[in-house]
Amino acid sequence: MSLPQKRFYRQRAHSNPIADHCFDYPQTPALMDWSKYYPEKFKECAESPPTVEFADIGCGYGGLLITLSPMFPNSLMIGMEIRVKVSDYVMDRIAALRTQNPSEYQNIACLRTNAMKYLPNYFRKGQLKKIFFLYPDPHFKKAKHKWRIVNQSLLAEYAYVLSEGGIVYTVTDVKDLHEWMVQHFEEHPLFSRISDEELKLDPIIEKLYSSTEEGQKVSRNNGDKFLAVFRRIKDPLVIV
């Protein structure tokens, strides 16, 4: 089985997240059958099946998943992508990698969904350890800011599916969007920014710059890359 060719899967970079697309999604997280996404992992431990811990939201062509797969062999990761052809490319790519490298890439998978609408359908409260937003659609026009994957209301959902101590990684080449994301995460009481000092110890950071297709494109064009990482913290508000 050969790797899929990207030229058959190209699609414009924008998608309307508010429209009523056709999606299959589980009614509740308990009804989600992950075993078909990670068949080998589920065979290995049929007794206590593993749970998905990392979510790459808007995973694009799947570069990050493929880089992280061998780094965290025991963590299940899911890429979520709204575009039909792009998500299909990642699925074909992972399938091909699995056939070419038996026993590898068993911990990564991709599904087509609208993460803005269906995250609580897939994940229980506090299930995720890491969420990635790499090169999200900047939606430049002010009228479309509500379509941005990071906004005040949606941060509550990300905080809900993340466990306390869980981490959100954001990277963009658009300065304006970077400032927007930093502002919204910093204003949200359930997130606090992780210092550059601390980030030096995180092996994922350097991969964020280079592993994704978007990141490589920005490098080719000598563009800037802005990184911001946040930790899900306990609710500071204690009501007596």
């Binding site: 009614q27 509740t28 359908n121 509550a156 359930l190 508000l237 009501i239």
Partner: peptide, 22 residues
């Protein structure tokens, strides 16, 4: 309209207690 019932803490509504899904 999206089938969802969301339960948020009040007044700290940024903290979601649960979703009643089904």
């Amino acid at each position: 309209r999206d089938e969802k019932i969301r339960v948020s803490h009040f007044p700290n509504c940024y903290n979601i207690a649960s979703y009643c899904l089904g």
